[in-house]
Design a protein around this nucleic acid. Structure first.
Length: 417
RNA sequence: CGGAGUGUGGCCUAGUGGCUUAGGGCGCCUGUUUUGGGAACAGGAGAUCGAGAGUUCAAAUCUCUCCACUCCGACCA
């Protein structure tokens, strides 16, 4: 545990109601600075980075090229696309000279500005560019821990195409990678719902929705054909009947963890992003944008995976795969053996590349160590104590199991890998 | 911004005008004892009771203003 400077809390701060906020704060993953603004502490940052890396890997598989755009945006770029006045979620500020800026809430303007420098020809298309970065939004109301912050981690991918047909093709491949990402992050139920195309498109956008009572979105979903729509846009005359197959529609509360969106020429036209096609004609570049929020994903994972004891991290995003707990014995000789065994197991797991947390604290009781291990949600727990040493074994227990099992040290790796 | 609620050591909380030098639990420090589901005992450090103004002989407690946080709504990944 000397790997962590944080401590767990027996009780959650009384104001926090949402499960993800309570457990993340109690476990020492995050610390709230102000509403919707959090620090990520060692445990929390490991999880966030793991999620980001899962996302990054898929984006790279898609052929996306990673970049990093600025947070500070000059007013002019937002005016070019006509959003300076209308985007009321922008944090706006002035520098000492009186120049105006916005904190990046989204990056269509900035990416379009980059693209117009490098895209000249149909030969430069298609192009997929993404970043993972902190976004700032002046939310009217931050809420639910990591689910709606004013400052949050976001992966935004932008695609550039010759025409709508090509854009649609990519749209579907991105949809597939999004599903892959979410599965990897441990989500089993994922609903892709049609949603509003926004102010400039009649076409639907698509939202990736995780059903949970903690969700703030409401969607209608048909179990038999998979039709799903955000309640915001659904046709009330449908009266609970699927427009595709006429079966019953169910309503779910969900968390929107990602969305994909056709931008058409809405940015390329006002910002003069065009290319020469094969026949030498100048045409506006057709764009798509695709968002996914790693920090929200982290919150959503907890809403879906927890019990009365704490978090139950999915294997892929857990901060540590294993916690090794040594329990002191008053007998000096036995204690030595316990320590040696625990240390050996710890090192062996590390050598095998397993992320392992070592609870070597000598002033803490067994019960407390177990409670903490459960709270922070480590999938595997290995215990070395007087009991286990007496039988020349170690104890292994999964976070989902009630009772642990004694196994020999040599079988440990097989069990958890 | 509208509605509801809450602000007391790091966290949970008692106290609703004077018996408060603000009490307890957790956590923290010292020591002793414990050791398989958030241990026990003893001692100790830590609080301008969210901030400011007011009422009063007297304010954590009453009044006003402001601030912060949570929840519902409007805005949104």
């Amino acid at each position: 545990m000397s790997q962590l400077f944080t401590k767990t809390l027996r009780e959650a701060p009384k104001d926090e109601v949402s499960v993800n906020a309570q457990l993340l704060i109690r476990g020492g993953f995050i610390k709230k600075l102000s509403a919707g603004v959090y620090s990520f502490l060692p445990l929390g940052l490991i999880v966030l980075r793991k999620i980001e890396n899962i996302v990054r890997e898929e984006m790279n598989n898609l052929g996306g090229q990673e970049i990093l755009m600025p947070v500070l945006h000059p007013r002019e770029i937002w005016e070019e696309a006509g959003r300076w006045e209308t985007a009321d979620y922008l944090y706006k500020l002035k520098d000492r000279q009186g120049s105006e800026f916005a904190l990046g809430a989204t990056h269509e303007e900035v990416i379009t500005d980059i693209a117009r420098k490098y895209i000249n020809s149909y030969r430069d298309l298609p192009l997929l560019v993404y970043q993972i970065q902190t976004k700032f939004r002046d939310e009217l109301r931050a809420k639910s821990g990591l689910l709606r912050g004013r400052e949050f981690s976001m992966k935004d991918l932008y695609s550039f195409h010759e025409d709508e047909e090509d854009r649609k093709k990519y749209y579907n491949t991105v949809e597939n990678s999004y599903l892959k990402i979410l599965k990897k992050c441990g989500f089993k139920d994922i609903i892709v719902a049609e949603a509003s195309g926004g102010s400039f498109s009649k076409e639907y956008s698509h939202e990736f929705q995780i059903p949970t009572i903690a969700g703030e979105d409401l969607i209608i979903f048909c179990k038999s054909c998979g039709f799903a729509q955000n309640k915001e846009i659904c046709d009330l005359r449908q009266e609970g009947v699927c427009p595709n197959c006429e079966k019953e529609l169910k309503e779910f509360k969900t968390i929107e963890v990602g969305n994909i969106f056709a931008l058409g020429a809405n940015y390329s036209k006002p910002m003069s992003l065009s290319f020469l096609d094969r026949s030498g004609m100048t045409k506006p570049v057709i764009m798509g944008c695709y968002g996914m929020g790693p920090s929200r994903l982290m919150g959503a994972a907890i809403e879906v995976h927890h019990d009365h004891r704490g978090i139950i991290w999915p294997e892929e995003i857990t901060p540590f795969g294993v916690v090794v707990i040594q329990i002191e014995s008053k007998n000096e000789a036995i204690n030595e053996k316990i320590k040696k065994t625990a240390e050996k197991v710890y090192k062996k797991l590390q050598e095998k590349g397993v992320a392992v947390l070592y609870d070597e604290r000598e002033n803490k009781g067994a019960g407390e160590k177990f409670m903490e291990a459960d709270l922070i949600g480590i999938p595997w727990r290995v215990v070395v104590s007087e009991r286990t040493v007496a039988e020349n074994k170690i104890e292994i227990k999964n976070r989902n199991e009630k009772e642990g099992a004694l196994i020999s040290e040599s079988k440990l790796l097989k069990k958890i890998l």
